[in-house]
């Protein structure tokens, strides 16, 4: 449920490093809490984010949540397929359900995030 090769933040986003690019999405826990995702509002490539910035919104039928970037950098790619099939976020949160790719301005920010064990402990504590 929480792949070991990813990093996680307290807002339930995950980050995967691919060279200097961070791929981002939301965790299994987050998609489960939301229920069926019906809409994902994402920015366009070229937007520059600072760590902690909101980069979009994700909606189920009866809730809306902001998406926060745990890292700084420029958005280089956006998963446009989610506009037609937002439920991919539920079905494959770590694969086809990715949301944005960010060219990192400070790769050390990724190191500061939780690993899978740390995130699971964080979830257990919150429970």
């Amino acid at each position: 449920m929480y792949p070991k090769d990813l990093k996680y933040d307290r807002e339930h986003e995950w980050v995967r490093l691919e060279g200097g690019i961070a791929v981002m999405g939301i965790s299994h826990f987050a998609q489960d809490q939301l229920g069926e995702v019906v809409y994902v509002d994402l920015p366009t490539a070229g937007v520059v984010l600072s760590a902690g910035d909101s980069f979009g919104e994700i909606e189920s039928v009866k809730s809306v949540s902001e998406l926060f970037s745990p890292v700084s950098g420029e958005i280089v790619e956006v998963n446009d397929a989610l506009s037609d099939t937002p439920e991919t976020v539920n079905e494959d949160p770590y694969g086809d359900g990715w949301m944005i790719k960010v060219s990192l301005s400070d790769p050390s920010q990724v190191d500061a995030l939780m690993d899978a064990d740390g995130y699971e402990a964080f979830l257990a504590e919150a429970e």
Binding site: Y39, E59, V61, K62, S63, V64
Partner: peptide, 11 residues
């Protein structure tokens, strides 16, 4: 009732 996430009771 649909697109309720626009409305005050949710947003």
């Amino acid at each position: 009732l649909t697109f309720s996430t626009r409305e005050q009771h949710i947003r």
